[in-house]
Design a protein around this nucleic acid. Sequence first.
DNA 1: AATGCAATTGCAAATCGTTTGCAACTGGTG
DNA 2: CACCAGTTGCAAACGATTTGCAATTGCATT
Lengths: 142, 142
Amino acid sequence: MKKRAAKRLDYEKELRRQGVRITRQRSAILGILSETEDHPDALEIFRRAVAVDPSISLSTVYRTMKLLGDIGAIHRHAFEGGPSRFEHATDHHDHLIDIETGDVIEFKSDKIEQLQDEIAKSLGYDIVHHRLELYGRKRRTG
Amino acid sequence: MKKRAAKRLDYEKELRRQGVRITRQRSAILGILSETEDHPDALEIFRRAVAVDPSISLSTVYRTMKLLGDIGAIHRHAFEGGPSRFEHATDHHDHLIDIETGDVIEFKSDKIEQLQDEIAKSLGYDIVHHRLELYGRKRRTG
DNA sequence: AATGCAATTGCAAATCGTTTGCAACTGGTG
DNA sequence: CACCAGTTGCAAACGATTTGCAATTGCATT
Ligand SMILES: [Mn+2]
Ligand SMILES: [Mn+2]
Ligand SMILES: [Zn+2]
Ligand SMILES: [Zn+2]
């Protein structure tokens, strides 16, 4: 899954456009989000943010994730068991979670996406969003 | 989605087989689960159970759902936003959730199931379980 | 650069769904 | 019908997230 790193400035630009203030704390979080390629949870983002701005609070991380989610700059995933995990918004894709390591692997299937649309349509619905998560374990190549 | 109602006695038999006691509270819950065709949450099961046995507690509902889940007699779903919802175990199927009414519609696609397997395999994984949820709104037939 | 004020913050407390410790109770076997 | 491990109700604890509030700060305005 190729992912173009969103630029911190892209985020800030979008925030300003929405009349939202760029605070020191938000800059720190945006910096972290823009350069991360994984799916960290709020606490992990908080830990990374503290390294940049020790005064930041977990509340602010949560509030910022909420804000960014609302404007569509990030996506929130509630994988089984754990807390919500975040990633900067990119093209839609789904996830395979390694149930032994917790690793998250991204994938995309146009066929599945299309079948979903057909199923929804046949039931009289339009899909607004969906969630497809595969939980598996690495096949031991014996 | 055709669903054969599980019999309360099926549940009890399985529980006894596992050396688990059939208490008044468990009977009440099993009765409710065996005759429900929807996806109630713990609180709703509790409400229905109280009507049968006023002494039952919410804790016992949760403990019983855990127990039944562990032996595979029921399935637990964590749909977006709300609390866990339960249904008695039947053949695998996935869900379409009406984001306006909360209604849950069941569906099954062998094609999607197969594509999932192929994707996992191509990534070097075996699927242990998965979650596919479509969130949509009723198409207005205008 | 100084002012003004609504937006934002950190903190603590609240919330929600769920789990758990514990003393009292009870199913089911002998 | 006695026994006792399994089960219960209750209240308190839990983990993730949200919220009220008084203090702070971004930034548009002079
Ligand atoms: Mn992703
Ligand atoms: Mn179902
Ligand atoms: Zn998808
Ligand atoms: Zn499925």
